[in-house]
Amino acid sequence: MIAGLTFACGAGAEELAPYTVVGDGIPASLTGTPGDAARGRALVLARTTTCILCHSGPFPETRFQGDLAPDLTGAGNRWSVSQLRLRLVDASRFNAQTIMPSYYRNDGLVRVGRSFAGKPILSAAEIEDIVAYLATLRD
């Protein structure tokens, strides 16, 4: 099954790299190159990235982890790289009611704060780093 949809960006908003959804994933890297798993781990742990506000995971070094969302341990077993990439770009495609934010989206949002308006939460390169890290989470 192919749902070949290519997204362009809204006018005035920061340019997003175009991507193509195939089935339930995005098979191609948003940057054209593979991400860096070590940088990805550091990003997931950074509060400003927001992942561990909701998730916990194999992070013995911090007590500040959330429990609003599944533990990320083993995420690389449960999901392919392509699925992980779409989950980060737009989790609402897996569950329309999800509370997980769409990390690569810059329009259709309400009252976005001045300093965040028109920008995605994460850059394409940051998403690739995090995807590379999540793919290593196998048990």
Binding site: T50, P101, S102, L109, V112, F116, I121
Partner: peptide, 9 residues
């Protein structure tokens, strides 16, 4: 009930 902000919550 309205979702808002960049985090859309």
């Amino acid at each position: 009930m309205q979702r808002e902000g960049q985090l859309n919550l």
